[in-house]
Design a protein around this nucleic acid. Structure first.
Length: 927
RNA sequence: GGGUGAUUAGCUCAGUUGGUAGAGCGCUGCCCUUACAAGGCAGAUGUCAGGAGUUCAAGUCUCUUAUCACCCA
C-alpha cells in the first residue's frame, strides 16, 4: 500500500466491478426497502445539490442493503419539458433556425437525438459519485411504459370528471408561448411606476364630459382592454356613479362603473380600472359584473388587431410608452409615481409573465388534495424534519386547480381528440377513441396539440417505474416506498402531487412513508450557487480537482451577463488561488454526510472537505499499520487460546456502542451525527488510543503468543468492522482496504457492499474494561501534561512514584502496566507507602492517587508552581459552583436524589483533588 | 401582512426527556516517536442575540424585543 491515500487510484475500478457483477440489484429476500430517485433532467449535469441528495440516498441504500433488506434504489431521468425544449431551440437559433422551420415531427426527433447524445451525462456522473441504484431498472419519463401510464391516468381522471378543459386566465410565457402553472412563476419585487390616469365620465349620450375618475395602474398598456371601472359600493365619494359610464380614452369604448369590494377605498383614489382578460383579480371582478373580456395581446404580447390601429403590432412595453405619451397629450395623465411592485416572471424564460386568456386543461384538485392532506395528518406520511408538514398543509389547504397543458412540442401529447365540430374525446389513440365513443370509422379526429406538464408524469413516478398499470411483482414488493429524499423547494411541485396521484391510483396507498427534506447547498459565504453568480462548484471538480485556469474558464464562459466576468474571475481567484485539489469521492461524500444536519442551508467549505480527506488518509494509514502487524503473522483466527487484553476488550466494547449509535442515527436521518460518531471512534479511539496500545504488546518479546494473537485479531477484526460501518458513506476506500484485509479473516466474499452491517453485541460491552481504560488514560494524560508543560523532551523516559493509592489502583495498573509504561514513556514505577516521605515532585492525579515525577534535574520549580496554581484555580472555580448548589437547601430538597448524589460525588472528588494539589503546592513552595 | 427557521468559541456547526456547554477548521507551544507532518502530544478561547418569566436548576420550556434567511399573499 502507498504511504499516502490517493483516491484517483482506487475509485473508478471498484464501481465498474460492482455494476458489472449486478451488486446493485435487489437481493430478492429480506424486508423490502425502496427509494425512488427524484429523476434529474435527462440532459442535465450533476450539481452540488444532486451530489448531496444522492449521497444521502446512496448511504441509506447501502446501509439497508448491508442490513439484508431487499433493497431497491430506482433510478431514472425526467424529460423536463420546457428546459429541454429550450436547449434544443437555442441550438436551432444559433444555426439561424426556429422549431417552426423544422415542424413538430422533425423538431421532436431533434430533441430525441439531443437526449440520446447528452442523456447519459448525468447518469455517468452519478456513477462517479459511487451511487448504487439498480441501473438495470432505469426508467425515463417518456419511455413507452411510463407514457402508457400517463395516458391511462389522464383518461381515468377525465372520465371521472377530474380533468376538464376550460378557457381561463393562465400565466402566459410570452417568449416560450406556453401556459405555466402557478409554481413555475416566480414573483419578485422590482422597481417600477404607478401611473395615474384621468378617465372621463360619459354623459347620457355617451360623450366624454369634463368630470373624471382617477385610476392608477402599473401596466398602462392594459387600458386598451379595460371594460369597467370599479369603486367600493360603500364609498360615499363614488357611490352615486355606480351604473354610470366612462368613455375609455384612446379606445372610445363606453365602460360601466361598477360597485365591487375589490376596490379598496383606502388605496390610491379608490377607483380601479378593470381589465378582465389581463389580470387575475380583474377577471374575478369581470365575472361578477358580467363585464366583457377583451384580449389585447398576441401570443408574443404584441398589441393585437382588436385594438386601435395605431397601437397594433407594438410590443407591450413599447405600447406602454406610446399610450402614456398619448394620454399625456390629451391631458389625461395625472401623475407618475415610483412604485415597487411584484413582477411575475417565468422561471425558465425569465420574461414577465402575462395573465392571458386561453383554452387549457386542468386537474380539479380539491378531491385529490383532501385525502393527501389526511395522509399527512394521520401520520401515514411523515416529514423529516417534522415542521415541513406545515409548509405542505399551507399549500394544500389553499390549492388551485392545476393547469396541466403546455404549448410545447416536447412531452407527453395530451390524449384528447377533436372531431370536425370541435367536440372533444379522450383516449390514447384515435382508434381507441372511435371505439370508446362509438364513432364512425371515417370520423376525422385531430389530436390536441398540447403536451402535459412534466410534473404530471413525475407525479406517477413511484408506481409507474414499478410497472403500473400492470400489477407487477415489483409494484407489490416495493410500493409504498420507504422514503423520499428531496429538497424543500420541490414539496409543492412534486411531493404533494405524488401523494395525490399515489393515493388516487394505488387504492389509497401512500407513495412513501417518509419524506426526508435536506438543506440547500450553498457556497462558503452562504450564497446560493448559480451560474449567473459564478459561484458554482461542480462536484466532479471537487472529486477530481481542477486548475485555476480551467475553473475560471468554466465560470466565466457562456455568461448571460458578460459584465460580471471580471468580478467573478476576481472572486474565484481569491477563493481558489490554486484551483481545487482532488479530494476524491469518499471525502466529498463524507463531507455531505457530516453537513446533513437539520438546518435548511448547507455551506460547502473546502476546509471542511480537506478535513475529511485527511480522515480518509488516516484510515488508509491505519490500514497500513494493521496490515504490517497482521500480514504473514498468526492472528490466532482459529485458535481458542487467543487471549484478549484489557485494551482489546475495551476497543471491542466501544465498537459495540458505536455500532448502536450509528444505527440510531441512520434510522433518524441524522447523517451528521452518524458521521461524527464514526469519525470520533475511528480517529480518536481506534487510531489515537488502540493502535498505540497495541504497539507495546506486539513489539515486545516477552508477551505470550496467545496475547499477541488476541491483539492482532482484535486489531484486524475491529478494523474490518470499522470499514463496514463506514462503507455506506465512503464506499470506495472501504472496499479497497477491505479487499486487502479480508483474507486475514478468511472472508471469502467478493465485496464489502454485500457484507452484513455491524450490529452491536450487548455481551461484548465490557464496563470493567472501559473503567480500566479511563483510569489508564488519566494516568497517561497526567504524565503527558507534566511533560508538555514542564518542557520535558518527549523522548526522555521518566521515573514515576505513586502515592496515596488503593488496591484498585494497583489492580488497574496491573491490567495496563505494559501499555502505560510505553505510552507515557516511563522508566520505573515505585509504589510509595503513604507515610513514606516523597521527594519533591511534579504531580498529577488519577482519582485520589498521586503520580509523582521527581523534580531532580528535570523540573523547574517555578514552572511547576505556576502549573499547580492554574490547576487549583480551575478546580476551585468548579468546586464553588458545585458547593453553591449543595449548600442550597432548595436544591437538595427538591432535586431528584440521583442528581444530588451525582453532584455530591463531584464535590467530593474535586475536594480531594483540591487538597492534594494544595498540599503539593505547599511542598514545592517550601523547597 | 401570515407562516417557518436561525442567532452557541475567530469561522462553520452539534447540543437527546431541563442537571451547569462540545466538535471540526483555525490559533499557540513542543515533536519528523519504526501507520500517518494530509501526522502526534499538550493548550487557550464562550454575558449560549437582548430582556422578562416558570423552576432547586434554562442553551434547552413560556412570553417579548431585535437582526437575518426562506416560504406564502
Amino acid at each position: 500500500m502507498d504511504k499516502t491515500y490517493n483516491p484517483q487510484d482506487i475509485e473508478q475500478r471498484w464501481y465498474q466491478h460492482w455494476e458489472s457483477q449486478g451488486y446493485f440489484q435487489p437481493a430478492g429476500e429480506g424486508d423490502p426497502y425502496c427509494i425512488m430517485i427524484p429523476p434529474p433532467n435527462v440532459t442535465g449535469t450533476l450539481h452540488m445539490g444532486h451530489a448531496f441528495q444522492d449521497t444521502i440516498m446512496d448511504s441509506l441504500i447501502r446501509y439497508h442493503r448491508m442490513k439484508g433488506d431487499n433493497t431497491l434504489w430506482q433510478p431514472g431521468t425526467d424529460h423536463a419539458g420546457i428546459a429541454t425544449q429550450m436547449v434544443v431551440e437555442r441550438q436551432l437559433n444559433a444555426a439561424g433556425q426556429t422549431r417552426h422551420d423544422l415542424g413538430r415531427e422533425d423538431f421532436v426527433k431533434r430533441v430525441w437525438e439531443w437526449k440520446e447524445e447528452s442523456g447519459g451525462t448525468i447518469t455517468q456522473q452519478l456513477r462517479r459519485l459511487g451511487a448504487s441504484p439498480d441501473w438495470s431498472r432505469e426508467r425515463f419519463t417518456m419511455d413507452d411504459g411510463l407514457s402508457e401510464a400517463v395516458g391511462d391516468v389522464f383518461e381515468r381522471l377525465y372520465d371521472e370528471g377530474l380533468i376538464y378543459r376550460g378557457k381561463r386566465l393562465v400565466n402566459w410565457d410570452t417568449v416560450l408561448h406556453t401556459a405555466l402553472s402557478d409554481l413555475e412563476v416566480l414573483n419578485e419585487e422590482e422597481n417600477g411606476h404607478m401611473w395615474h390616469f384621468r378617465y372621463p365620465l360619459a354623459d347620457e349620450q355617451g360623450n366624454a364630459t369634463d368630470e373624471h375618475l382617477i385610476v392608477a395602474t402599473t401596466r398602462p398598456e392594459t387600458m386598451l382592454g379595460d371594460t369597467g371601472v370599479a369603486v367600493h359600493p360603500e364609498d360615499s365619494r363614488y357611490q352615486h356613479l355606480i351604473g354610470k359610464f366612462i368613455k375609455l380614452p384612446l379606445v372610445g369604448r363606453l365602460i360601466p362603473i361598477v360597485g365591487d369590494d375589490y376596490a379598496d377605498p383606502e388605496k390610491g383614489t379608490g377607483c380601479v380600472k378593470i381589465t378582465p382578460a389581463h389580470d387575475f383579480n380583474d377577471y374575478e371582478v369581470g365575472k361578477r359584473h358580467d363585464l366583457e373580456m377583451i384580449n389585447i395581446f398576441t401570443d408574443s404580447a404584441e398589441i393585437n388587431d382588436d385594438c386601435p390601429l395605431e397601437y397594433r403590432g407594438l410590443d407591450r412595453f413599447e405600447a406602454r410608452k406610446v399610450i402614456v405619451a398619448d394620454l399625456d397629450k390629451l391631458g389625461l395623465l395625472d401623475e407618475i409615481k415610483d412604485h415597487t411592485l411584484m413582477v411575475p416572471r417565468g422561471d425558465r424564460s425569465g420574461t414577465v409573465v402575462e395573465p392571458y386568456l386561453t383554452d387549457q386543461w386542468y386537474v380539479k384538485i380539491t378531491p385529490l388534495a383532501e385525502p393527501a392532506i389526511e395522509a399527512v395528518e394521520t401520520g401515514r406520511i411523515k416529514f423529516v424534519p417534522d415542521n415541513y408538514k406545515n409548509m405542505y398543509y399551507s399549500w394544500m389547504n389553499d390549492i388551485q386547480d392545476w393547469c396541466i397543458s403546455r404549448q410545447l412540442w416536447w412531452g407527453h401529447r395530451i390524449p384528447a381528440w377533436y372531431d370536425d365540430s370541435g367536440k372533444v374525446y379522450v383516449g390514447k389513440t384515435a382508434d381507441i377513441v372511435r371505439e370508446k365513443y362509438n364513432l364512425a370509422a371515417d370520423t376525422t379526429l385531430r389530436q390536441d396539440d398540447d403536451v402535459l406538464d412534466t410534473w404530471f408524469s413525475s407525479a406517477l413516478w413511484p408506481f409507474s417505474t414499478l410497472g403500473w398499470p400492470d400489477q407487477t411483482d415489483a409494484l407489490k414488493t416495493w410500493y409504498p416506498t420507504n422514503v423520499l429524499v428531496t429538497g424543500f423547494d420541490i414539496i409543492f411541485f412534486w411531493v404533494a402531487r405524488m401523494i395525490m396521484f399515489g393515493l388516487k391510483f394505488m387504492d389509497g396507498e401512500v407513495p412513501f412513508k417518509e419524506v426526508y427534506i435536506h438543506g440547500l447547498v450553498r457556497d462558503a459565504e452562504g450564497q446560493k450557487m448559480s451560474k449567473s453568480k459564478g459561484n458554482v462548484i461542480d462536484p466532479l471538480d471537487v472529486i477530481q480537482g481542477i486548475s485555476l485556469p480551467d475553473l475560471l474558464e468554466k465560470r466565466t464562459s457562456n455568461l448571460m451577463q458578460d459584465h460580471k466576468k471580471d468580478s467573478i474571475a476576481k472572486a474565484t481567484k481569491r477563493q481558489f488561488p490554486e484551483g481545487i485539489p482532488a479530494f476524491g469521492t469518499d471525502a466529498l461524500r463524507f463531507t455531505f454526510a457530516a453537513l446533513a444536519s437539520t438546518g435548511r442551508d448547507v455551506r460547502f467549505d473546502l476546509q471542511r472537505i480537506e478535513g475529511y480527506r485527511n480522515f480518509c488518509n488516516k484510515l488508509w494509514n491505519a490500514a497500513r499499520y494493521v496490515m504490517m502487524q497482521t500480514e504473514d503473522k498468526d492472528i490466532g483466527l482459529n485458535n481458542p487460546d487467543r487471549e484478549l487484553s484489557q485494551a482489546d476488550r475495551w476497543i471491542v466494547s466501544r465498537l459495540q456502542s458505536t455500532a448502536t449509535e450509528v444505527a440510531e442515527h441512520f434510522e433518524k436521518y441524522r447523517f451528521d451525527l452518524a458521521a461524527k460518531a464514526l469519525y470520533e471512534f475511528t480517529w480518536h479511539e481506534y487510531c489515537d488510543w488502540y493502535l498505540e496500545l497495541s504497539k507495546p504488546v506486539l513489539f515486545a518479546d516477552d508477551v505470550s503468543d496467545a496475547a499477541k494473537h488476541g491483539t492482532r485479531h482484535t486489531l484486524v477484526s475491529v478494523f474490518e468492522s470499522i470499514l463496514r460501518l463506514l462503507h455506506p458513506i465512503m464506499p470506495y476506500i472501504t472496499e479497497e482496504i477491505w479487499q486487502s484485509i479480508k483474507s486475514l479473516l478468511e472472508i471469502n466474499h467478493d465485496t464489502i457492499m454485500l457484507q452484513s452491517y455491524p450490529e452491536a453485541d450487548a455481551t461484548l460491552i465490557d464496563e470493567a474494561a472501559q473503567q480500566g481504560m479511563e483510569w489508564a488514560q488519566q494516568f497517561i494524560i497526567g504524565i503527558r501534561k507534566i511533560r508538555s508543560e514542564m518542557d520535558i523532551k518527549p523522548g526522555k523516559t521518566l521515573p514515576v512514584l505513586l502515592n496515596n493509592w488503593s488496591d484498585t489502583d494497583q489492580q488497574q495498573f496491573e491490567q495496563y502496566s505494559r501499555e502505560i509504561l510505553s505510552l507515557a514513556k516511563i522508566k520505573s514505577v515505585e509504589w510509595l507507602n503513604s507515610d513514606s516521605d516523597a521527594p519533591d515532585s511534579a504531580t498529577a492525579l488519577v482519582g485520589e492517587m498521586q503520580i509523582l515525577i521527581p523534580l531532580a534535574g528535570l523540573i523547574d520549580k517555578d514552572a511547576e508552581t505556576a502549573r499547580l496554581t492554574r490547576e487549583i484555580e480551575k478546580i476551585n472555580k468548579q468546586l464553588q459552583g458545585v458547593m453553591g448548589r449543595l449548600n442550597n437547601p432548595a436544591f437538595t430538597d427538591k432535586a431528584p436524589a440521583n442528581v444530588v448524589a451525582q453532584v455530591q460525588k463531584q464535590a467530593d472528588e474535586q475536594q480531594v483533588a483540591l487538597e492534594q494539589l494544595q498540599q503539593q503546592l505547599a511542598k514545592i513552595e517550601s523547597m
